[in-house]
Design a protein around this nucleic acid. Structure first.
Lengths: 339, 339
DNA sequence: ACTAGCACTGAGAAAGAAAGAGTGCTAAAA
DNA sequence: TTTTAGCACTCTTTCTTTCTCAGTGCTAGT
């Protein structure tokens, strides 16, 4: 088991390493623990054998292992509270009532990125339980029309529909009317199945070339569910961290950031602020990602901070928690105001 | 002035340096020019004094200076023709008739990025001479409505309008009707002034709270002109180039790429394919950017390739020219097909 | 106008030396 | 049983030194 001085020691080492990015030696901790370096060394050896500390080489000071950070985050961190200064910075955003929610989120993450020198990411998409409010169809020419879908939360998506053959305008109008009649109020992720099972049988009865029309609309309407915004801020920031000091490290992390499946690795499903350290991140063994889902009326997504494993965990977690809470509050306020 | 063997020599040095990324020595050119290294050295010294060549240190081989590249591009490059292999790669895209124009452009630039290991960029925006085809207004609730603008080319933009105070629906409807009546066919960049000078005087006469309504619509409709898509492909590619071999070089170029004013430096106004070498690029002294404007029905923008100064000029320029031509052709074909 | 020859230069790689930080272990002190 | 002092040892880092090599400029000769 891990003794109480050892806990204190692990915590101190994590904190020190986060601050300085250099292996922590036994001597430097003497004053703090009011004992000799030899004693510290004994405890360090113990912590190492438990897997919480590592050495960079045989006679170096210690650095926290992934398990060490994990233990710190799970058991040693101070009770959650955001620092006054950080809060102040973020408040400027939420005090500004003019700002739309999305802009407020972007702005906040820019601030975090800026003051921490980590990289931040926002994934956003329309909530899948939003309801369809209206379908508009605007013809551009004989073979091309635009389908516009509006949800109850004011989200608009449009898609150009190419028709394989010309369709009389009145058939388009009829179909549009039908779609509106039958689809208003339908959650957008149920639209495709409703098209298939409710609309198709009707449409086939009274439009002669129904397949062309049906397919066009099916394609247009069934893609809306998956639209997704992605915004990175401060991709270059992470390079300021001393862990990325060789060309290869830098190139490596940059390619990871640019790779196609980066986004899919960021999405978070849990409601809590979660921390994924090193290999847990699945992005790169040298980074930590802190992230959480947010959900407000009409929109949901993930906000995330990516930094080195040697991250200011407490600070980042607290800021993200603060942020999540305020996003969701602001979401509610905005909704009230609209009513 | 520069003699004809010297031209040949400069060309050879540029080509060799592009291939190998190492300073070119006099000996290596003996066979090619059927003369001794001393002769080459004399010519090299001459070319250096004219500013076309540089040394990395006092006894190194020569590398082309910015002026050297410039001279090569302007005077020494072979007559334009794209290589068969490159053409083949790009043809796969344009032969695929299914592909929408925008996707075809993206795809092409991905290919170029891929085979050259440079970074490619597409800027796109709706043409400013597109005409407004329809304005739709959909109320979401008492204080919020969505303005949707559709252009004759099928482009759709929408914007949420927040009303400072509730406005009766019939006033909204009246205004919408008026907008449609007066604005249809107006080029979108003339919309703001038409709003100000034609619509405002009318609206003030028959809507009592006209300022609220007017401002809301003015904000919604005057922003459409400036919307702009940006797509980078292969940002990490440029790092594969041997010129970016130190951490500082890499970090430097990455921050330049991420910086806010990067995009504004890419936009090109000229119709030709243009080459900006080193400091001419205004991005970074170590890169060259090759770019051109493209314009098709309804859309215009810039396509650009960014690479090291030691870029395969001929190849890139030819591909970009080929691309520009085919984009504009495809634009015309698509238009015909629609008719 | 070209070439051979030669002294010279700077980069880059390899090898060694010295300094410093920090460890583990042993034996003694508390 | 826990803590400490002391010491030998290890590894990194930094600084020199040395060598090699590619390539130059210049001079004198063809």
């Amino acid at each position: 088991m891990i003794g109480s001085r050892q806990k204190e020691l692990l915590k101190e080492i994590v904190l020190e390493y986060i601050k300085t990015a250099r292996p922590v030696g036994s001597k430097s901790l003497c004053k703090k623990f009011k004992c000799s370096s030899a004693t510290i060394r004994n405890d360090m050896a113990e912590l190492e054998s438990l897997g919480y500390l590592e050495k960079t080489h045989i006679s170096s000071g210690r650095i926290p292992s992934e398990e060490g950070y994990r233990y710190y985050v799970d058991n040693l961190m101070e009770p959650k509270k955001i620092s006054g200064e950080d809060m102040l910075r973020l408040q400027t955003v939420f005090n500004n009532k003019e700002l739309e929610l999305n802009d407020a989120i972007s702005k906040s993450l820019e601030i975090i990125s800026d003051i921490t020198n980590y990289t931040s990411v926002i994934l956003g998409k329309e909530s899948s339980d939003n309801k369809l409010q209206k379908v508009e169809v605007v013809p551009i020419n004989e073979r091309q029309l635009i389908a516009i879908v509006i949800t109850n939360t004011g989200h608009v998506e449009n898609k150009t529909v190419m028709l394989d053959e010309a369709i009389p305008t009145e058939e388009i109008a009829k179909t549009t009317e039908l779609l509106n009649k039958m689809l208003i109020g339908t959650p957008i992720d149920e639209v495709p199945s409703k098209l298939e099972f409710d609309i198709k049988p009707i449409i086939r009865n009274y439009i002669k070339n129904y397949e062309v029309v049906y397919n066009a609309f099916y394609n247009a309407l069934s893609n809306f569910t998956s639209e997704r915004d992605v915004k990175f801020t401060g991709k270059a920031n992470i390079l300021k961290q001393p862990e990325f000091s060789t060309v290869d490290d830098v190139k490596n992390i940059i390619s990871k950031f640019e790779s196609k499946d980066m986004v899919s690795k960021i999405e978070e499903t849990g409601d809590e602020v979660k921390v994924y350290i090193g290999r847990e991140s699945e992005i790169d063994d040298n980074v930590t990602i802190v992230k959480t889902k947010y959900k407000v009326a009409g929109r949901e997504g993930t906000i995330a901070i990516i930094g080195p494993k040697r991250m200011e965990y407490e600070r980042v977690i607290n800021m993200l928690e603060y942020l999540k809470e305020h996003i969701e509050n602001k979401g509610k306020e905005d909704e009230l105001e609209e009513k």
